[in-house]
Amino acid sequence: MARVMVVGAGGVGRVVAHKLAALEEFEEILLTSRTVERCNQIAESISSRHVQTAQVDADDVSQTVALLKSFRPDVLVNVALPYQDLALMDACLNAGVHYLDTANYEPPDNPKFEYSWQWAYQDRFYDAGLTAILGCGFDPGVTGIFTAHALKHHFDEIHELDIVDCNAGSHGRAFATNFNPEINIREITQPGRYFEKGEWITVPPLSIHRPVDYPHIGDRESYLLYHEELESLVKHIPTLKRARFWMTFSQSYINYLQVLETLGLTRIDPIDYEGTPVVPLKMLKKLLPDPASLAATYTGQTSIGCHIRGIKDGQEKTYYIYNNCDHAAAYQEVGAQAISYTTGVPAALGALMVANGTWQKPGVFNVEQLDPDPFLAKLGDMGLPWHEVIGQPSPFEAI
Rank of each mutant, 00 (worst) to 15 (best):
H149E: 13
S116N: 14
K152P: 06
I304S: 04
I133S: 05
L151N: 05
S394A: 12
E28P: 07
V367I: 00
E274D: 12
E228M: 00
K285N: 13
D127E: 15
L349N: 07
Q251P: 05
P108I: 05
F155T: 01
F71E: 08
F179N: 06
D313Y: 02
Y126P: 01
Y298V: 03
K241F: 06
T239E: 15
T147D: 07
K69C: 12
E28C: 11
T342G: 03
P372T: 04
P393Q: 09
I268D: 11
V142D: 00
R3S: 14
L88Y: 06
V79Y: 01
E27I: 07
D60F: 08
E397L: 14
I390R: 11
Q301R: 15
L281S: 06
I254C: 10
T299F: 02
G357E: 05
T102A: 14
A351D: 07
Y121L: 00
V36F: 04
N324G: 01
P395G: 06
N167D: 14
D381Q: 15
G363M: 07
S250T: 15
H209W: 10
I29D: 05
P291M: 04
V15G: 02
A355S: 11
W386D: 07
N40D: 13
L287M: 15
D101S: 03
K361G: 07
L151M: 13
L68E: 08
P215Q: 07
Q41E: 14
Y121S: 01
F175N: 09
I208L: 11
D373T: 13
L384P: 06
S252L: 08
T53N: 02
V164R: 09
H209S: 15
G335Q: 09
L151W: 04
C325T: 15
K285L: 09
G344C: 11
A398L: 11
M247H: 09
Q369T: 06
A148D: 10
P346S: 05
E182R: 09
F375K: 03
R210E: 10
P238A: 14
L230S: 05
R3Q: 09
A2Y: 13
A91I: 11
I268Y: 13
D139Y: 12
E27F: 06
Y226F: 15
T343F: 07
P372Y: 03
D57A: 08
P191R: 08
E27P: 07
K69G: 10
H327Y: 00
G264R: 06
I29G: 07
V51P: 06
V75G: 02
E160N: 13
F125E: 03
Q301C: 09
I399L: 13
E106Y: 05
K112C: 00
E37T: 14
I254G: 05
G335M: 07
Q258G: 12
T143P: 03
I145P: 03
